[in-house]
Structure formats: C-alpha cells, structure tokens
Simulated assay, not measured.
Amino acid sequence: MTKIELGRLGIWRPWSELDPDLAKDVEDLGYGTIWIGGSPRGDLKIADRLLAATDRIVIATGIVNMWDTPAEEVAASYHRLDQAYGGRFLLGAGIGHPEATQEYRSPYETIVRYLDRLDAADVPVEGRVLAALGPKVLRLSAERAGGAHPYLTTPEHTRLAREALGEGPILAPDQKVVLDTDPERARALAREKIGFYFKLRNYVSSWKRLGFTDDDVAGDGSDAIIDALVAHGDPAAVTARLAGHLDAGADHVAVQVLTERGGDPRPALRTIAETLPPR
C-alpha cells in the first residue's frame, strides 16, 4: 500500500454531526479528507455511508478508541472498507484520555499491544495513524504506523512533531477555527467547545511542554492559550494559522469549524476553501 494522499486540508467533525450530504458538499469544496471524530464505533458503518456518498475524498477516523474497540473488530472494518473503497480509508486510532476510562493504565504498552494485534490482522502500517501528542508516541507513530494525527495543538507543536517523526510519515494535526472578527465572542464560543479539555491531564501536559503556564491552563484557559489553540478572526487570519501548520511541517490540516449547537459548518468551510484552496 502506498502513502495515502490526504490533500492539504480536510475537515474534522464528530461522527454524530456527519452525514452523506455534508460529506458530498465537503468533497465538492475541494477538501481532501473527512476525519470522523468522537470515537466512532468499531463497526465503522458511518465510514461506509460517507464513502458511498462520495467519489474521491478520503475518510479517516479521528479516532477509534483503543479502550472501547477491540483491534480485531476494527481490523475487520478496515479490510471491508479497503476492499470496497481501496485507497480512500485511513484508520486513526488512539487511547483517548485517562479521565474517560476506568481501566486506563500503561498507555504506551497498550498502544504497542494494540498495534501488534492490528499487525496480526494484516492491517498495513501505511493504512493507520496514531493520535499522538508527546515525543514517545510520536516516535512510535513513525515506527509502527503511517504517521500521526495530533489533536488540539499549535503550529509550534507541529514543528516539534515533525522533528520527532522525521521526514516521510504523515503529520495531520487538527485545527479548531471560529470565523468571527469579534474576539470576545469567538473566545466565548471556543471556551464553550474546548473548556473541558483543561481538566484532562494529557492535554494539559502537552500544552505545558509548549511553554504554557499554570495560569494559562487554569479554569477554562487564559486568552493566550485560547487564541493559540483556536484560530479566530477574519478569513485571512484563520487561513494564516492553517498555513502555519503546513509551513511547520504538516502534510495536512484537519479543520474543525466551531459553531453554535446545530450550526452549519458549510459557510465557514466554503470561505476557507476560497481563501486557502485545499489542494
């Protein structure tokens, strides 16, 4: 299997907010990949529906949770999708965060054992990427997977991740965006959507490695860290942040448009595609 082509830009959206109509519209806008977020079920029926509705776009999981989904189940889903839509499905897997899983222990060893089971089920290295924040799992992403899908990071993290991965492996960070020129309103929406991550120690540890302080990560985050994690402003400001990841070594950026509950991401995705063409 050759390295999968993701395009410069894709979208990240919780599985519960994805449907075939949105997938087709995103493909028509020129985006290269749709990342299915929110720990989709191992049967990956949502990926089936999105792939069937589209012709070109890659569908990736961002991510299948290793604690919730046996490797053998997701391997069977991988082979089903690869056989039906060869070259258009990418398996993203990871261990999530410890606060969500009572059995969370020995995370690195758990990832290694999971990858061993995927190997035994003939899931190719190039067909999978790992959720990775710290240097140890980033190196594992280069050694045992096709690359890494870091979540809720910054272009500086992307630069460090590329150094850890080396040349060749896929580096596909996500970037949250709010197209709103009112900074207070944009930050309020950002805090509403990502505030709970400030209670999760793996994310907090990652941000501190980037130089953020205890004050930055207290409560639901300082303005400085919110601005670093969520790109907001006019289209030029938002797309400059996306370009910053690409300039720092990313192959691809997964754009997560933050909207009010039930909001439609299409207008923002269309504006971004017009300002920074996805391909």
Rank of each mutant, 00 (worst) to 15 (best):
V58W: 05
A71G: 08
G94Q: 04
R159G: 14
L90K: 04
F89P: 02
V64T: 05
L160H: 04
Q102L: 14
V123L: 00
D116P: 07
L44I: 13
P135A: 03
D116C: 07
V112F: 08
I46A: 06
L171P: 01
A121C: 14
G42F: 10
R159L: 14
A71I: 08
A121R: 00
Y85I: 01
G168F: 00
E72P: 07
S141D: 05
G146I: 14
H97L: 09
L133F: 01
L130H: 04
T110M: 11
T110K: 12
R105M: 11
R88A: 12
P40V: 07
E72M: 08
A131Q: 09
L90P: 03
H157N: 04
T69Q: 15
G92C: 09
V64F: 02
T101I: 15
V64M: 03
L130A: 08
G166N: 11
D119E: 14
E163W: 06
R117D: 15
R117E: 15
G94N: 06
R139M: 05
P70F: 15
V125H: 12
T61G: 03
T61L: 02
Y114T: 03
A164E: 13
I95H: 08
V74A: 07
A121D: 13
V137R: 00
P155T: 13
D122C: 09
A148Q: 01
Y108I: 08
L160N: 07
D68S: 11
T69R: 03
P155L: 13
P150M: 04
E103Y: 10
I111V: 12
I63H: 09
I111C: 03
L91I: 09
R162K: 04
D43Y: 07
G166H: 13
A132Q: 09
V125C: 13
E156L: 10
P98T: 02
E143D: 15
D116Y: 09
D48N: 01
L152G: 03
A53Y: 10
L160W: 00
A164C: 12
I63F: 12
Q102K: 13
I111E: 04
L138V: 10
A161D: 05
G146Y: 10
A75Q: 06
Y151S: 12
G146A: 14
G42N: 07
D82E: 13
E72K: 11
T154W: 04
E73N: 01
T154M: 01
P155R: 10
E163K: 02
E72Y: 10
Y104I: 06
R144V: 03
R117P: 12
L115W: 00
